[in-house]
């Protein structure tokens, strides 16, 4: 009895050793993770910024520069942060630094998960100049046509935004403010339209008077089209 007990105790390593081994492993692992984080940080940041920039340049025509605007204290403030929240929009400028239009973002629950889109808006003649889906998990093959079906995407180019737009069954478009929905993806099409209406109504009152647009201060230059 006594002998077996001591044997077991001999095999059992001290708790100090157990804690030490865990601590050392955790420390090494932490160092490696910090190293890889530092190594990849700039590239990841650059990727995200480029993705957003490309989207803004796609929805507004003839852009050369853009800057981020944040709506706080009832006015638009130019910011240079990496984060993005719902109160943020983008203003685009042509090669002579003249104001072109705004790129407005918005999100709403789609068929499966939140759909996040960006659209360009020209204040001068109240038209939407283009629409890009930033993020979505819509059904592959059906719902993802909201960004894969070019016929649908192109409906948002030069779309007059005098009143709220409306999605109608494909082929039954009769008015300027109607959008032909995608066959088999009616819900996803309607979500896109809904987001645009929502964000447009939210921002139309917030945007400064025409002619008072924020001037270009912090410029993010055009993406290299390679």
């Amino acid at each position: 009895m006594n002998t077996t007990n001591t044997k077991v105790q001999n095999q059992e390593p001290s708790s100090r050793r157990l804690v030490m081994s865990m601590a050392i492993a955790g420390f090494i692992s932490g160092v490696i993770i910090i190293a890889i984080y530092v190594l990849t940080f700039d590239t990841i940041k650059e990727n995200k910024a480029r993705e957003l920039r490309e989207a803004v340049f796609k929805v507004l025509p003839d852009l050369s520069h853009m800057q981020k605007l944040h709506f706080q204290d009832n006015k638009l403030v130019i910011v240079k942060s990496d984060g993005m929240d719902d109160e943020m929009i983008f203003s685009g400028y042509d090669k002579d630094d003249n104001f072109v239009g705004y790129a407005i973002q918005g999100k709403a629950p789609g068929f499966q998960d939140t759909v996040h889109i960006l659209f360009g808006y020209l204040v001068s003649n109240s038209t939407i100049t283009g629409m890009q889906v930033l993020d979505s998990r819509e059904t592959p093959g059906l719902g993802d046509k909201i960004f894969k079906d070019m016929d649908f995407v192109n409906e948002f180019v030069n779309l007059p935004m005098t009143k709220n737009i409306k999605a109608v069954k494909k082929g039954t478009k009769t008015h300027d403010n109607e959008i032909d929905a995608i066959t088999g993806a009616t819900i996803s099409s309607k979500v896109v339209v809904k987001i645009i209406n929502q964000s447009f109504n939210k921002w139309s009152t917030r945007l400064p008077q025409q002619g008072n647009e924020p001037a270009l201060e912090l410029q993010e230059t055009k993406v290299n089209q390679q």
Partner: peptide, 12 residues
């Protein structure tokens, strides 16, 4: 974690 960050940097 190494794979995660590398992929995020190389193949976003």
């Amino acid at each position: 974690t190494v794979v995660d960050y590398s992929l995020l940097a190389i193949l976003p």
